[in-house]
Structures are given as C-alpha cells and as structure tokens.
Write a protein that binds this DNA or RNA. Sequence first.
DNA 1: AGGATTTGTCATGGA
DNA 2: CGTCCATGACAAATC
Length: 742
Amino acid sequence: MLSLKKYLTEGLLQFTILLSLIGVRVDVDTYLTSQLPPLREIILGPSSAYTQTQFHNLRNTLDGYGIHPKSIDLDNYFTARRLLSQVRALDRFQVPTTEVNAWLVHRDPEGSVSGSQPSSGLALESSSGLQDVTGPDNGVRESETEQGFSEDLEDLGAVAPPVSGDLTKEDIDLIDILWRQDIDLGAGREVFDYSHRQKEQDVDKELRDGGEQANTWAGEGAEALARDLLVDGETGESFPAQFPANVASITEAVPSESEPPALQNSLLSPLLTGTESPFDLEQQWQDLMSIMEMQAMEVNTSASEILYNAPPGDPLSTNYSLAPNTPINQNVSLHQASLGGCSQDFSLFSPEVENLPVANSSTLLPLVPSNSTSLNSTFSSTNLAGLFFPPQLNGTANDTAGPELPDPLGGLLDEAMLDEISLMDLAIEEGFNPVQASQLEEEFDSDSGLSLDSSHSPSSLSSSEGSSSSSSSSSSSSSASSSASSSFSEEGAVGYSSDSETVDLEEAEGAVGYQPEYSKFCRMSYQDPSQLSCLPYLEHVGHNHTYNMAPSALDSADLPPPSTLKKGSKEKQADFLDKQMSRDEHRARAMKIPFTNDKIINLPVEEFNELLSKYQLSEAQLSLIRDIRRRGKNKMAAQNCRKRKLDTILNLERDVEDLQRDKARLLREKVEFLRSLRQMKQKVQSLYQEVFGRLRDENGRPYSPSQYALQYAGDGSVLLIPRTMADQQARRQERKPKDRRK
DNA sequence: AGGATTTGTCATGGA
DNA sequence: CGTCCATGACAAATC
C-alpha cells in the first residue's frame, strides 16, 4: 500500500507534467485550483501529497551522494532541481518551435522584429522583397534593384547574426523546411523573371532567325544552354539535358569557387549546411531575402561583374555573386534564382552531373538543368529531403499536382511540412483556442512570466514564505543532525529551545510564549532557533507552544500550580519557566532526572547508555527517560515530517507554476510560429502562381494550370511536369511518410 | 461556542 | 532484536 502511494504521488507528478505540456487541453491549474476532487486530492490531498515520495531515492541514486539522506532541505532542493530539470528538458524538447519562431519573427513582413535580434534592416528588406514579388513592373526597376542588391549585400554582411550553436536536429529540419519554401520560391521566381524576359526576346528572334538562338544567348553568357536543349518528344518542350557549359565561365569570376557546376547547389546549400555550425539561421534568412530582392532585378553580366568585384574575403559577396550569372534555360530556368545561395561555402553537390531522371522520362520538363548525385544522400541526412523534396524527379511528386491545380503550393507545404503542420493543427484544433492565444499574447507582452498566477490557488504561499521555508529547511537539517552534541536547555522546550542554556533561562523572561503571528512569519522555523533570524528580535523568544496541561500524577507532587499567586519576580519567572517546559520536562523534573531532556533525547545511543549507567536510576525513572527520548525524537520526526510535507506541497505548487509558464510560453510560440507559417504559405503561393504564369512553352503560350504543375525536385530544381504525372508521384509520395513513421 | 490551526503523542512499519 | 526514522492518526492547545 505504501509503495502504491509513493507510486501514485510520483507518477502523478510526472503525469501532471506530461499532461500540461502535451495536452494543451489539460489545464493543470484548473484541476488544482478548481478543487476538482480527483487530481487535487491525489496531488495535494491529505495522504498522498504528504506521503514521502521517491525524492530520497532519486536524490540518493542520482546526485545525492555524501549528503545526509534525511535532510529536509535537500529534499526540497533536489526535488525542485529534478522537477525543474524535467521541465527544462521538456522545454528543450520544444526547442525547434522556439528557434524557428525566433527566426520567423524576423522575416515578418510587417517589420515586427523581435528586439533580441539586431537585424532591423532585415524586415525592411523582407517587405521590399515582397513588394518586388508582387509588383507588376519588375523589369522596369532593373537599375534600382541592382543597386539595392549590392547594398543588400553590404547590409547582410553587416547584420550577420550570431550563430545559435545548439540547434537540434528538429530545429534544423524545421528551419530547412521553411527555408526551402522561400528559397525555392524566390529562386524560381527570380529565374522566371529573367527567363520571361529572355523568352520574349528569344521567341522573337527564333521566329526571325530560326536556330540561331544560341548566339542570342551568347551575350548573356548562356549560349551553352541552347546546345544542351533537348526536345521532349511528347510535349515538344525544350529542356536542358545537362548542366550548362557556361557555368564554368561564370564561376571563374568567383574568387574561391573551384567547382564550376556548383551553381545549382546554391539553392540547397544553405539548407544543407543547416547542420554546419558556422551557418546561422539569420544568415540563411538574409540569403533568402536577398534572393527575393534579386528576383526584381535584371540579371545581366554587368551586375554580375559588380558583384564579382566584391572583396574576396567577403563571404556574402562571394555567395551572392553567383546568382546574377546563372545560366538560364530559355524554356524554363527556374533554378537560377535559387542559386543565389552560398555555393562557395556549400558546394555540397558533386560537380559531376548525374543524368537526370528527366532524361529517361520524356514527359518531364526539367526546369533546372542541373541535378546532383550527392543531393539525395545529403538531404536524407537532414531528414528534410524526404519531406520536402523527393529524391528524384520521377521517383516522387508532391501533392501539388492536383487535377485542378487550385493550390499548387499545397503539395509543397502540406506535404513537406506534413508532420509539423499536422501536429500544430491538431494542437490548435484540440487544445488551443484563439481567445487563449490572444490572452497569452497579452499576458506575455508584459514580459511577466507569472502573469498566470491570477488564477492561482489561494492556498499558495507567497514567495517570501516559500523562501523562508526553504532557507529554514537548510538550517534545520544541521540542527537535527548536530543537535546531539549541542547543549540543550533543561528548561527550554524540547525541540525548539535555543542552543544556549543560559540564554534560554535568563532571557526567556521576556519571552511571551507562543506567538502565532511570529510563527506565521517564521513558518517552519520553530525547530532551529537560528531560523528565527527572519525576525531577529525574536531570537530569544522561546517559541514554546506550552501546553496548559493538567499536571500528571507524577508532576503534581513537585509542581506548584501555575496559578500560585506569589507576587515575587522570582515566582513569576519560575511560573513562566514552568509554562515553558514541556510535559516531559515537567515529568523529568518531577522524577528528579539528573540530566537534561536534551541529552536524553539527542545523545547517541552509546553515550545515552553510558549516561544512564552513571546514575543509579529507578525503574520508573528509566522508563520515563526512555519515554522522553522516544517522544522527543518522535516530536522532531513529526516536525521534520510536516516540514517535508509542506515543502512537497510548495514544490508541487512551484512546479505547477513553472509548467503553466512553460505551457503559456509554448502556446505563444506556437501562435507566432503559425502566424509566420501562414505568411510563408501565402508568399509561396503567390510566388508559385507568378512563376507559373510566366512560364511559356516554345510557342510562347502560357501553360495551362490544369495540365501542368511545378514540381520541386530533391536537388533543388523546379520542374514543370504534367498533372497526371504529378498525381502519380503524389500518390507514391503519400505512402512514404507513413512508412517512415513506423 | 465552535471551527481551524498548530503541536505533541502514539502506533506502526521500514531500514 | 533494538534503534532510529517516517508518517498517519489522534488529541490537546491555541487562535
């Protein structure tokens, strides 16, 4: 039965922690404060809450070596520590959300930049990037955007934020997912802008010059593309069969770029390097922002030259310098914008271009001529690839390719972030209501972690009480353990006399006995006089809860009734001292016990027996002495026990508060995260539509959204594929996550 | 007077 | 087996 109690207490505590953190719906505070019988009774109830829990065991086995196992204060300390660590562990478990949230806050287009991060300019860039995205006149603003781009580079370099070194894998995964959205989108868009313009020119020339389009591209540094174009036999679409040869020439301009084909890598590289410490999220975001900026500007050689002239030591410059030069497929050059990333730093993709699956599948229209063999492995390592980017083009497909194309991004987002979103949605639908969210936001705007305490149980002690309790507990243990050797006043009340006999006797005169108001201040500090320090002037007050008990038969002989009316001060003093004495002390005096109750009680057994042997004591005396010892020890034990109970309750209270704080914080973070996610989704969708709308087939006609869809491949390329194929791939892709989840 | 709280005590069980 | 300790339960003292 006892073990069951212990189990219940401990288990329920943990269960409470879990409930409050897992189930948003479970409100521990409600259970505790609303007096719902079951939980409250179990946790705080008269029996189980007071039951000694496994704290001892935990402490002794984990980190309690060398410490007296029965020290109350240590109970408090270790319990608090253990529970706190649990909470923090849970918090750490939630870190992904936290980290991502912080990151996303910066990209808030409204410029709601968290104060803790120094990238104030970033939000502005973000907004401008958005404007560019939606702006109808991207091409017109060529020059200014160009300038802005270079400025951006400087800014980005200046704002490079500190690296958050302890990102967990979940962090990185989530970040990468979000990163991919924007990167891919921004990339695709930027390329499309360029492609679009190119297209318009080239189409005209094609009509005029026939097969001389390659020459047309020479000026743009893209002549090789035309060479490599393949014509899809089914659709008639032209697509690059392999990576453009001109990339090499472009990369030459990059100081530290050694591998020419690394251009394509830049799209994914920021993500892939998420696991690499030196690359921080802020940087990634800045990259993304800059890419978005780039999409509004004209990509031409002059711009590239400017960029390339950036100091070689500037990593940002080198990173971004690649983007303008991106070779562009005349049909669909989605990938170029995505190459704005840091190819130099993250040349993860092998230069050797594996033959695209596209080549095998004639129906596929690879928008990006590049594909990398190392991509799949790299991505699988980040756990992202599977989610977001199907390893191979024909091997996987997104949900995007719905028959009626309404949400082309659905696949990108819904599938890629299936896990996260579903979890969050679940949480939102089940346990999270907007009212709560807004409340949370309001509460946390005040930056007060304790804002939830308004609903706190009235029984909760004030912090001062708690602190006094804990401080008292620390000193009481020493008292309990060392009191054996300390002198004990025979006149003082057993258990809470001062450690000085003379002080007790002489100064107790001014004491007024039990004073409840003081006892409340010095709660739980009755055992050790030193604990009265919270009220120094009470130090000498014998905190004796003297009973006005009727003298027992033994006492009656010797003890004058307290009501004896002798006016002398001596009498008064004796009277008072009598009152101060405990029953056992009266008895001891009555029986003429030759030593103090303090010794009787606190002496070790050997010394105690030694002491007894020194005197010739009657059987009654011996019996009384043993009773006194037993009762005295039990009294202290009872005090310790009650103190422990109280500490346990206080700890539980504190734990509940902590959990409430954590829960509220997590909820707030979730809200912010979802908000950012929503914005991202919208942005991605608009970009997708814009990109798709700018696509033209070889005849200059736009693709029908009902027949084609853009697909994001695992290597960062974007493909234009027929809907039917997209459907198939989507179906195939649906099964994968389930398998993986097993 | 009576409820609530504090404290001491006893019985019991585990170490 | 004796001792010590923890704790539930009870009662007295006190507020």
